[in-house]
Design a protein around this nucleic acid. Structure first.
Length: 914
RNA sequence: GGGUUCGUAGCUCAGUUGGUUAGAGCGUCACAUUGACAUUGUGAAGGUCAGAGGUUCAACUCCUCUCGGACCCACCA
């Protein structure tokens, strides 16, 4: 047996161990089957990794996701399932493009996109993305992630591109994707549209201006954005508002509003207008507000776009304003209103400003021609495994998304997120999928240059072809007229491709691919709750539609990793804990444990360096437990030999182990990784190290070493999903044939068999209690550690043999007992302190302070008496006897008799003292 | 405005369908320490389970309200 080093130094082993795993090929389930590690006919277990963005480096969010998923994957692999964990990265369109622009600007290129042009700029982005991918992929390895690298995917690689184009075409052909001129969220900085959920709200205080359009206009309105008023086409009032009733339907013409355009304002009624807010009248700007746009559609108002894609005023805002920024325009119009005595009030009011979630630039809602996925458009369902939706049935994307979760085919953990999910879907609007950026999947639509880009018409008008062509393959010529074509310059929302992730990584569009057949639907989707809508919901949408099946059976949502004060980690706060630094300092296993234990689904967790350091200590503890066991003289073949317990402690620890296996299985299967880890830690540190190991030092049975060795091996297996490196390192030291990675998970059965064959008692807990009582008495009476004492133990007949058999343990386990007498008749000892545990009485003959001892006894009596009284009262309650289950009543009775016995003894002792 | 969630020892949290004299880790205090481990051992102190009602034989656990915090959603101009 090799000797382990004194302390575990992760840095020495981790990279080597990962290399060993990776080179074995066992991260790939096919190799496991091929080499006979996993049976051919076993079950499948699959997870696709939420692809990290290629914008940066590994952070704690990634680390927590990798730790949880790797724990699951390793558990299932060791349980003999064909386990696949697919790695990949996400091109993160806007985020990546923005980052590269920034880098290029820092390098001195003032306007990267214009200066370089599409092609050159894109090659810069690609270069960056590739480097970034390499970095993050290697950092995943550092975390010990047992990902099947042979199946690595990238959202923008050729295979995924094909999947994207195929799905786009399918949706387009079925009328679920359409191009339309609608109001969209526009980020003037990104120069692109955003989806509804990419808009964030920031509370800020704003000026609210109350004004009239003109002196003649009969009443005033309020606004926080005066510059948009140049595009007003109506004023809305509540139909019940008496003040304005008479104006409804009237049209007012305002000449040269704000020194700019002429306005035609129609007074309309809308129940959504709050009578009590402001003046009770709302200026309607259809082009720059979603709500106003809806009103405009209802009331057939014209839509005047006064702000353009650069955030500047358009020609329609009038020549005085055209070209000004919105901010400048606001100043100018307020000034105009003021000098013309149209401005009545200027108040400060809290306001929710909508900003871009990537760059925090204020969003400008404006009308634009874009591509949309229509979530409420009916279509005929293809082959379907979705509960409640049959093949050929008419349905909508919204209904599909609801059915998959409502029917119980997908379970969200924790369950409460169901509600949020349904609520979100209920309020879901069409998804704007086109983005005006360059990095991403280019929309696979080609326009005939002969045509004038009209939508969805296949006719030839005036000998001009006006059809747009959707093609999975790149095309050069219009199939209708043979003319030249031009591809749409926009790209797709990054979440479009991420939405396909579970199946685009498994072979789609080849529906016969082995991976797709075997590993899809995936078993679990593990991700942060913050992307439930962005991503999880989109995957459900895409997969149910494209495959008629669910993408995954479970959704496990983890929370955010926060700093020790509960704040978000951010560069500006300087409170970022970098996982790679922590790995370097404390080892990967410590980092993983700190992220797995004390972390529950759906809840944020707090992390501190101290916590990680604590788990480093534990890692070292485990190492040393092994170091000790391996230093023992045990039979190499212990694993194959039948273990026979010889002592109470033997049976006890084997039973504990049996229990542990049961609990760890239960908790992992139920996604309680934290609890599983806590139980493992408790067993390892308390039961095994502090008790069994200590006790074993004073046993001289041949068997104890074999038992230790036997348990050690299974314990390493149980720990492996949580702390793969240290466990595998030790495993390699004990030179087993198989790697721990593919070793068989411990079975309760093997322990049951051993225990069932023994007639030994297992009540080692009593011995523990006796030992603790003695230690306690020593400490309380300040008996110096070096002082050996004499103990007399009265053990009633039912436990007499047991206690006698453990005499040497009681004497040696840090009790400082030199001479221990055990007898089954009650001793009478003067000048001794006595404590009783479970009917066993322990007398320590030491010189004691009688007053102090009396005080102690008195204190104990006064805590035990009310307890007994409470129990007696409970038991005399007829309702309790009548209603409570029998076992509970019995339990309470027993408690009472034990308490009474204890009090009796305490009182006796007290009497003896005085 | 709607919704979700949390409030248990100084700190971080467990507490599985109501039945424990309410638990752990860290921290604190006292003691120990040359062979597995100071990245250690032993022991102790510390909680009216936010507050008030209610349901029940029984409430940390279920219901209602109050107080305090977090988050998500929403077009209040």
């Amino acid at each position: 047996m090799k000797e382990l080093e004194k302390a575990y130094e992760p840095r020495k082993y981790e990279d080597k161990i990962y290399k060993l795993w990776e080179e074995s090929g066992f991260f790939n389930p096919d190799v496991c089957v091929e080499k006979g590690e996993i049976k051919k006919d076993s079950r499948y277990f699959s997870i696709v990794l939420p692809p990290p963005n290629v914008t940066g480096t590994l952070h704690m969010g990634h680390a927590v996701m990798l730790a949880i998923q790797d724990a699951m994957v390793r558990y299932h692999r060791m349980n003999g399932e064909k386990t696949l964990w697919v790695p990949g990265t996400d091109h993160a369109a806007i985020a990546t493009q923005t980052k590269v622009e920034k880098i290029l600007i820092e390098k001195g290129i003032k306007d990267p996109k214009n200066d370089l042009g599409r092609e050159k700029f894109l090659s810069e982005v690609k270069k960056f993305a590739q480097e970034s991918r390499d970095t993050i992929v290697n950092q995943c390895r550092k975390m010990g992630a047992s990902l099947d690298w042979s199946r690595e995917a990238y959202t923008l690689d050729e295979k995924r591109n094909l999947a994207v184009r195929s799905v786009f075409k399918k949706m387009y052909d079925e009328g679920l994707i359409e191009r339309g001129y609608r109001i969209v969220n526009w980020c003037p900085r990104c120069h692109s549209t955003l989806a509804d959920d990419e808009v964030e709200y920031k509370e800020q205080s704003a000026k609210i201006y109350t004004f009239r359009y003109s002196v003649e206009f009969p009443f005033s309105i309020a606004t926080t954005r005066p510059e948009t008023k140049l595009g007003d086409t109506a004023v809305a009032v509540n139909p019940k508002d008496k003040r304005y009733k008479k104006f409804i339907g009237k049209i007012f013409e305002i000449k040269n509003f704000g020194g700019g355009p002429d306005l035609k304002i129609k007074i309309i009624s809308d129940p959504s207008v709050d009578v009590s807010f402001g003046t009770g009248a709302v200026g309607v700007t259809p082009a720059h507000s979603f709500a106003d746009y809806e009103m405009a559609l209802k009331n057939k108002l014209s839509i005047i776009k006064v702000i353009d894609e650069d955030g500047k005023m358009t020609a329609e805002a009038g020549s005085a304003y055209a070209g000004l920024s919105a901010k400048e325009a606001r100043k100018k119009i307020v000034e105009f209103l003021r000098t013309n005595n149209l401005l009545e009030k200027e108040d400060d009011a809290p306001n929710n400003l909508s900003v871009c979630y990537r760059c925090e630039t204020p969003i400008e809602p404006l009308p634009s021609r874009q591509w949309f996925i229509r979530v409420e458009k009916e279509f005929k369902m293809g082959p379907s495994k979705i509960k409640g939706i049959k093949k050929g049935q008419k349905t909508t994307l919204k209904k599909l998304m609801q059915a998959a979760v409502r029917g119980g085919q997908i379970n969200i953990i924790p369950e409460r997120f169901d509600k949020t999910y349904f609520y979100w879907i209920d309020n879901l609007r069409d998804w704007c999928i086109s983005r005006q950026i360059w990095y991403g999947h280019r929309i696979p639509v080609y326009y005939c240059k002969q045509g004038d880009y009209h939508e969805n018409t296949a006719s030839l008008k005036n000998n001009k072809c006006d059809k747009s062509i959707v093609s999975v393959e790149e095309i050069k010529k219009c199939p209708h007229c043979g003319g030249a074509v031009e591809q749409d310059t926009d790209t797709l929302d990054t979440w479009f491709s991420s939405g396909l992730w579970t199946f685009s990584t498994l072979g789609y569009p080849d529906l016969n691919s082995e991976d797709l057949k075997n590993f899809h639907p995936t078993s679990v989707m593990e991700t942060g709750y913050d992307i439930l809508f962005f991503w999880v919901a989109r995957m459900i949408l895409m997969t149910t539609y494209v495959l008629g099946d669910i993408p995954f059976e479970k959704v496990y949502l983890h929370g955010l990793v926060r700093d020790e004060q509960g704040r978000k980690m951010s560069k500006s706060l300087g409170n970022v804990i970098n996982p790679l630094d922590m790995i370097e300092k404390y080892g990967t296993d410590a980092v993983r444990l700190s992220l797995l234990l004390g972390n529950t689904p759906g809840n944020d967790m707090k992390l501190s360096e101290e916590k990680i350091a604590g788990f480093r200590n534990f890692t070292n503890k485990l190492w040393n437990i092994c170091r000790f066991i391996l230093s023992l003289d045990n039979e190499e073949s212990a694993i194959n030999k039948k273990i026979k317990p010889k002592t109470v402690a033997d049976v006890w620890i084997l039973r504990k182990m049996l229990n542990l296996i049961y609990n760890v299985d239960f908790d992992i299967i139920n996604y309680n990784f934290s609890q599983a880890g806590e139980k493992l830690r408790e067993f390892t540190w308390n039961d095994l190290a502090d008790w069994y190991l200590e006790a074993s030092k004073f046993e001289n049975t041949e068997e104890k070493n074999n038992i230790l060795y036997f348990i050690l091996k299974d314990l390493l297996k149980l720990w492996h999903p949580f702390m793969p490196f240290v466990t595998e390192t030790i495993w390699q030291e004990i030179s087993e044939e198989k790697m721990l990675l593919v070793s068989e998970w411990p079975k309760e059965k093997s322990y049951k068999e051993i225990i069932d064959n023994t007639k030994l008692p297992y009540n080692f807990e009593l011995i523990q209690k006796i030992i603790i009582a003695i230690r306690n008495m020593r400490a309380e009476n300040k008996i110096e550690a070096a002082t050996k004492i004499r103990a007399v133990i009265y053990a009633p007949n039912n436990v007499f043999d047991l206690v006698v058999s453990q005499k040497h343990i009681i004497e040696n386990l840090r009790t400082g007992v030199e001479e221990c007498v055990i007898q089954n008749n009650k001793p009478k000892i003067d000048n001794a302190i006595c404590v009783s545990v479970d009917g066993v009485e322990i007398y320590l003959s030491v010189s004691i302070d009688a007053e102090k001892e009396k005080f102690r006894l008195q204190k104990e009596i006064s805590s035990a008496e009310p307890y007994a009284v409470g129990l007696a009262k409970k038991l005399s309650n007829k309702e309790f006897i009548k209603n409570a289950p029998k076992e509970i009543v019995e339990k309470e009775k027993q408690k009472l008799s034990e308490a009474e016995e204890k009090i009796k003894k305490l009182k006796e002792q007290l009497k003896n003292l005085s």
